[in-house]
Structures are given as structure tokens and as C-alpha cells.
């Protein structure tokens, strides 16, 4: 028998929907120079953030973002009861180190670039379950830590594939509270791992588009909604290639004319030489915790479906020629 709050195949609907009372985003210089630069809370002057290594810069960026989100409600870190966060580094060290400094009880998550939706989903479930009243959900990525882990050394003369995406240097944090005013999380759909047999590590959009559409389709079916119910359906980081594929799949799957976009396409200007678009946990995290939630607060957007997409590969499986499985989680955020 399905759970009491479960709806359809993979969706949960919250009885007492958690409210997003505050949020913050910190981005790198390149992201700050993009079309949404003014919508982020802070733009870093450089990628090293005054630290010794890029890895330290990444965790400081995440810590700073979480502190900013809490500060908006005049909370100190110990006022938060739970931190849910993840990133792209091995053993998610950026999140681990940020949690060490903040001393908030911490559950680390890994969902590759889908982490922001994963942390929101888990956070909303734990809150609706009555376990916590104040939860921080966050995610971050850093271009130079991800690049050295997944791709080529920075100084190696390699032509970037046109399908390749640019890992965003960005962090986003959301404060969920059981009571308060702001947009609320109405429902969430936990995605399945979908493998479309793609093997090109420099074309993540193609690897993840199948998972994204699967989750969107499942969400709409589970909720008995039509595609045009949402003011905006936005995927995390499919990029130009992946979102073009997704649009085709919408038609195939009979999803009615959604107002659809992709954070990876939105984050940068055309002139910023980012190949197919932005990617990384930070890409969807900063777009949500910057322009998107800002538009919700302003009433421009009232119903948002955020689908964060992740490519669940490791450099080792990529070397071994294994295909790249994708995952996507959907979070429905609405205004009262």
C-alpha cells in the first residue's frame, strides 16, 4: 500500500507545505557577468575567494551562502536544525567542510547536478513529517574544482566540444520553515535513474534529457496536471543540446505546451563561450535562489516546477566506457 502522502507513481504531496522563508546565492565572476548578475546576493571577485585552493574557495562560498540565507531571517547557524547539502567533489567535501564550520546537524547528499532538488525534496519531507522546523537545503559547484576532477587540466590545450557545458561557480541555499510567509513547496517527484545509453562525457545534456522528461511526465501524470498548469517548467542543466532534445520528447510524450526553459541555457549570455550552456549543482541552485525565487516573491511567477538534472557517472566509469545514467527530481513551488 502506498504511503498516505504519496500520490501516483513517484510523487509526494505535502499536507503542511514547508515555506521557503529565505534564500541566498553567491556566484563566481563569470556568472555575475551573465544576464542575471544583479539577482544574486553576491558575486565573487575571483575564483579563489582569497583562499589557498579552489576546493577551499568552494566550501567557503557554500558556507557564506548558507550564512547569508540564515541572516535574512536574523538566524545564527545554530538556529538551524538540519543542513542538507551536496556538491560535485569526491566525498562531497565542500559540503562536509561547510557543515563542519557551521556546526549545523548535517546530512550530506549526492545527486550530481540534481542536488538542489534532492535537498529541497528531502528537506520538505522531513519537515512535513514533523521532525524539524528549520532546515537549510543547499548545493554548490565550482568550475575549477569540477574541471580538474572530471575533465582536463586547466592549462592543457584542448578544444572544448561544442556540446560540452560550463560548470558554474555558484552556490544556492534555501531556508525551509514550517511556518512563515513566502513561496511553499507543494509537491515533489523523486526521479528514477534513466540511462539512454549515452557515453560522451562532454555531452551531459543528451545523457540527462531522458531522465528530465521522464520525471516531468511522471509528475504531471501523478498530479493529474496538464503541462501548461505551471507558469514555468525549468530544468537544471540540460544546456542547449539537452533542452532541445527535451522539447522534442515533450511532443512525443504528449505533454501539453509547457512554458519551458533550462537554467543552463539561462545562466550565461550567448557571448560567454560556454558551449552548450551552464551545468553543475550550482547552476540550478543559484538560478533558483536568485532570479526564480525573486520572480516568485514579486508575483511574476506563481507556479514553478523545478527539475534538477544529474549525470550519475564518475571519471572512472567514463574511462571504462560505461554509459552515463541520468537522474532528475522535480520540486513544485507555488505561491499562496
Amino acid at each position: 500500500m502506498p504511503g498516505r502522502k504519496k500520490r501516483g507513481q513517484q510523487t509526494v504531496v505535502f499536507d503542511t507545505p514547508p515555506t521557503i522563508t529565505a534564500w541566498a546565492s553567491v556566484v563566481g565572476p563569470k556568472e555575475g557577468a551573465g544576464p542575471w548578475g544583479r539577482d544574486f546576493d553576491a558575486v565573487m571577485d575571483d575564483y579563489i575567494f582569497g583562499e589557498k585552493t579552489w576546493e577551499i574557495a568552494e566550501y567557503k562560498m557554500l558556507r557564506n551562502t548558507i550564512e547569508r540565507a540564515l541572516d535574512k531571517r536574523n538566524f545564527r547557524p545554530d538556529d538551524a536544525e538540519l543542513l542538507l547539502a551536496g556538491d560535485l567533489l569526491n566525498q562531497i567535501v565542500a559540503s562536509n567542510f561547510a557543515a563542519r564550520d557551521l556546526a549545523i546537524p548535517f546530512l550530506g547528499l549526492y545527486g550530481a547536478c540534481s542536488t538542489m532538488a534532492e535537498s529541497l525534496t528531502v528537506g520538505a519531507m522531513l519537515m512535513d513529517g514533523g521532525y524539524f522546523e528549520r532546515i537549510v537545503a543547499a548545493a554548490c559547484s565550482h568550475h575549477y574544482t569540477a574541471e580538474r576532477q572530471y575533465r582536463f587540466p586547466t592549462e592543457q590545450g584542448v578544444q572544448k566540444a561544442q556540446t560540452a557545458q560550463w560548470t558554474a561557480t555558484a552556490a544556492g541555499a534555501v531556508l525551509l520553515e514550517a511556518r512563515g510567509s513566502g513561496p511553499y513547496i507543494k509537491a515533489a517527484t523523486v526521479g528514477k535513474v534513466i540511462d539512454m545509453g549515452q557515453t560522451d562525457a562532454s555531452d551531459m545534456g543528451s545523457a540527462m534529457a531522458g531522465a528530465a522528461v521522464h520525471t516531468i511526465k511522471t509528475h504531471l501524470d501523478d498530479m493529474a496536471l496538464s503541462g501548461d498548469y505551471y507558469d514555468l517548467i525549468v530544468t537544471g542543466d540540460l544546456g542547449k543540446v539537452g533542452s532541445a532534445i527535451a522539447r522534442q520528447l515533450f511532443v512525443r510524450e504528449g505533454i501539453v505546451s509547457p512554458n519551458y526553459s533550462d537554467c543552463g541555457v539561462l545562466l550565461y549570455d550567448r557571448e560567454q563561450a560556454v558551449g552548450s550552456g551552464g551545468s553543475g549543482c550550482g547552476c540550478s541552485a543559484c538560478m533558483l535562489c536568485g532570479p526564480l525565487l525573486k520572480k516568485m516573491r514579486g508575483g511574476e511567477l506563481r507556479k514553478l516546477l523545478l527539475i534538477c538534472t544529474g549525470a550519475l557517472m564518475s571519471p572512472i566509469t567514463a574511462f571504462q566506457g560505461e554509459s552515463i545514467p541520468g537522474i532528475a527530481h522535480a520540486v513544485a513551488i507555488e505561491l499562496w
Binding site: F152, Q156, G157, V158, A161, T199, S202, D203
Partner: peptide, 11 residues
């Protein structure tokens, strides 16, 4: 070789 066999050929 690189352009025809991409993505599997690295420098």
C-alpha cells in the same frame, strides 16, 4: 581523427 571519432579520443 579527433573530429571524426569524438568523443572518445583525447589529446
Amino acid at each position: 581523427v579527433m573530429d571524426v571519432t569524438k568523443p572518445n579520443i583525447t589529446p
